[in-house]
Nucleic acid binder design. Structure first.
Lengths: 140, 140
DNA sequence: GTACATGCAAAGGGTTTGCAAACGG
DNA sequence: CCGTTTGCAAACCCTTTGCATGTAC
């Protein structure tokens, strides 16, 4: 029922080169919203002949086909994750760790806000930047 | 009661060069969240000897002193506005026009969401990407 | 076989920085 | 004055692209 990233590639009829298979594996195994450089490094561990330009091109291809979602968190270069259910992100500003959460009430509210302003909502971004409570007093 | 950007600079004791005065004027007169290039162009109309590096440096200075807020909307280079009350943005994805709105209920909810996840909220980003309703059917 | 994907290196945006000259307090 | 700020151009980072070569289907 739940297609893997590789399944989705096949359904789209994408030509599956060795490099793409490796990148698909890396992305499927990642849960940490890696950036392009991280994907490249992880891919290079499997097959060191993969160029970073290929990683960029492949990621863009997947993004254009709605297989990957791009995030541009404050202070980071673009980070990616496989598309899944709608959710938002909390970024630990100390470690860069990303956690996910859902909030359907807020989702509905934003649609309404846009409507009241005379717009139809296409997309929206909700990101929380925070520090772990237990460490808060060591803040600086 | 409400300090202007220039007042704030003076209170901070910033050295007010001719260039900085011009940039302050441009920023104070802007309501459209300009990017660095736009600020530079507008500044150049007043005094054409202002270099873009100076604009970058001045904007960074103001940002570091909490006089300016930086936004990185999807698909745009960084855009700035003078700091004011807390508010969020709706970006017209066709024209790039930015509108503002407030939603204190959502603000409170996000603080709570972070808390439930074991974090203290430092900052958050809420951006709506939308198209005007009257134009919606001409979408493409 | 052929159109498409790759690696490399060069080019591209947007932004920063080193330097000598100019300037503000 | 003297440390700060400036303009210029070079450097920077991340990303894209042109080209000759390699490869999936």
């Amino acid at each position: 029922m739940m297609d893997t990233l590789l399944d989705k590639c096949n359904k789209l009829g994408l030509k599956m080169t060795e490099q793409r298979k490796v990148i698909v594996k890396v992305l499927s195994d990642s849960t940490d919203h890696p950036d392009v450089e991280s994907v490249h490094k992880r891919a290079a561990k499997i097959d060191k002949r993969i160029g970073i330009a290929t990683v960029y091109r492949t990621i863009k291809l997947f993004e254009d086909n709605n297989l990957l979602e791009k995030h541009e968190f404050k202070g980071y270069s673009s980070r990616y994750e496989t598309v899944r259910e709608n959710h938002h992100h909390l970024i630990d500003v100390r470690s860069g760790k990303v956690s996910e959460f859902r909030n359907t009430l807020v989702d509905a509210m934003q649609k309404q806000v846009a409507k009241e302003m005379g717009y139809k909502l296409i997309d929206y971004r909700l990101e929380l930047y925070a520090v772990p409570i237990e460490n808060e007093r060591t803040k600086k």
